[in-house]
Design a protein around this nucleic acid. Structure first.
Lengths: 108, 108
DNA sequence: TTCATATTTCCAGAATTATATAAATAACGT
DNA sequence: ACGTTATTTATATAATTCTGGAAATATGAA
């Protein structure tokens, strides 16, 4: 993953509405939810919702498929995982023992 | 971790200069680096550097200690880890098998 | 082909964030 | 105390991002 993609993903998540939407979609799983239900859940006007969904979509953190009149959004776990990996890459090369990122660094 | 703290941390990382600074500090380890050396590395004017360091500091992702005239900045692995945990919490409860976040979810 | 539903795009104003010059603060050596 | 080094704070401008009303697009139903 390139730094520019990491920044895009991080800034997609660095906003309350989007982080909440993403959290919801992560919990919901691959099935996803139609845009309308997401907006309803958080009381968002349509253009605001659409702005945030397209931001998340552009970042690759969520996917979108059409089902009839609805657009169904769902978390993209693969890209989320790439972001996680990027953030812990090259971690604490000087001193792995002093590092506190268990998932990635305790295996070093 | 509360959502507000996650957002603060994510927005600290969602900017090229800060993500580069953080990446450097993560690699350097607990020893850290003086502000001056960080600024030199990226060719940043002092106020710009200071703005970004204080942003990262405020987020908890880096720490700062004084050594003589220098302020030494270093990665805070503990808080980085909390952010990672927050992002994968409650992941794919519907269908763990379909989830692609190995570090966190394959153990479910 | 007209109507209703679902959602997006266009747009403009509001809010936030980033940048860098100049001035201030902090610590050390003389 | 004074000068030097290291860094921050104050401040202003520039750039980016967020918000929501109005209009546009896409799909399906009658």
């Amino acid at each position: 993953m390139k730094i520019i993609n990491a920044i895009t993903a991080l800034s997609a998540l660095a906003q309350e509405t989007r982080l909440e939407i993403f959290g919801l979609l992560v919990q919901v799983g691959a099935e996803g939810l139609p845009a309308g239900q997401i907006g309803e859940r958080f009381g968002l006007p349509f253009p605001t919702l659409s702005f945030h969904l397209s931001h998340l979509k552009r970042s690759g953190l969520i996917d979108c498929r059409r089902e009839g009149r609805s657009l169904i959004y769902s978390a993209n776990y693969k890209n989320m995982n790439k972001l996680m990996t990027y953030l812990t890459e090259n971690c604490c090369q000087e001193n792995p023992a002093g590092c506190d990122l268990p998932a990635v660094c305790e295996s070093k």
